[in-house]
Simulated assay, not measured.
Amino acid sequence: MGRVSSVAAYCLLVGLYAVERLAELVLSARNIRWSLARGGVETGFGHYPSMVVLHTGLLVGCLVEVLVLDRPFLAWLGWPMLALALLAQGLRWWSIRTLGHRWNTRVVVVPGMPLVTGGPYRLVNHPNYVAVVVEGVALPLVHTAWVTALVFTVLNVPLLAVRLRAEEAALGRGRGRGRG
């Protein structure tokens, strides 16, 4: 794959991720309305703006690093990272589908609803966050944007810790199946 075509393909990939994120936000807004109509309560909203900035920064960083710093596509790294990024997307949408109307990008919980224990939640408490961690490394490394992968990962660790504490508190427990 030539340099121009690999960069164009990568820009298209990141663009598709951006469109997917916008679709998530539309779905999330619909689901938040559903939850609030059933007495849902939002908590832990203080970290949300930082999360939006960080996740937007991941996509922007992927493009800027590849375009400005002239990162190459290395097939031995790029193809496996693409596979991981796509698997992470699959896990994300499996999580979203399993939670149904209860999935959203904020921490909104409808009191009294039972915890979801099916789908990927029977395997791990927060499968969507597993997807985020994998994607934060894999998507940039598809085109060797290692600085973006490193910065996102380092900044995501404390943010994810705050998010997990907020979700666990909202769900009224210290362990068990999550919603993320």
Score class of each variant (00 low, 15 high):
His126Gly: 00
Arg21Ser: 02
Met51Gln: 14
Gly90Glu: 11
Thr117Phe: 00
Val130Pro: 07
Gly118Asp: 15
Val64Glu: 01
Gly119Tyr: 01
Ser50Leu: 15
Ile32Met: 04
Ala37Asp: 15
Glu65His: 11
Ala138Tyr: 05
Leu82Ala: 15
Tyr121Gln: 03
His101Ser: 14
Ala131Glu: 07
Ser95Ala: 12
Arg106Gln: 14
Met81Ala: 13
Pro120Phe: 02
Val60Thr: 06
Val133Ala: 14
Ala18Gly: 12
Val52Met: 15
Gly46Ala: 14
Phe73Gly: 09
Tyr121Ile: 04
Arg122Ser: 15
Val53Ala: 15
Gly40Met: 04
Gly100Trp: 11
Gln89Trp: 02
Ala75Arg: 14
Ser35Ile: 01
Glu24Tyr: 03
Ala23Phe: 08
Leu91Gly: 05
Tyr129Ala: 03
Leu91Asn: 03
Val66Ala: 10
Val41His: 06
Gly46Pro: 12
Gly57Lys: 02
Thr117Tyr: 01
Pro114Trp: 02
Phe73Ala: 13
Pro72Gly: 05
Leu36Gln: 12
Ala37Pro: 00
Glu42Gly: 08
Asn125Asp: 13
Arg71Glu: 13
His47Asp: 14
Thr105Gln: 04
Leu84Ala: 14
Val107Gln: 02
Pro127Gly: 08
His47Gln: 15
Gly119Val: 00
Leu36Trp: 00
Asn31His: 06
Glu24Pro: 11
Leu82Asp: 04
Leu74Glu: 11
Arg92Leu: 03
Thr98Ser: 14
Val109Cys: 01
Gly119Gln: 05
Arg97Gly: 11
Leu115Ile: 05
Asn31Ile: 07
Ile96Leu: 07
Leu87Tyr: 03
His101Leu: 03
Gln89Ile: 06
Trp79Arg: 13
Val66Asn: 03
Ile96Asn: 01
Leu86Thr: 04
Pro72Phe: 02
Trp76Ala: 15
Thr56Gln: 10
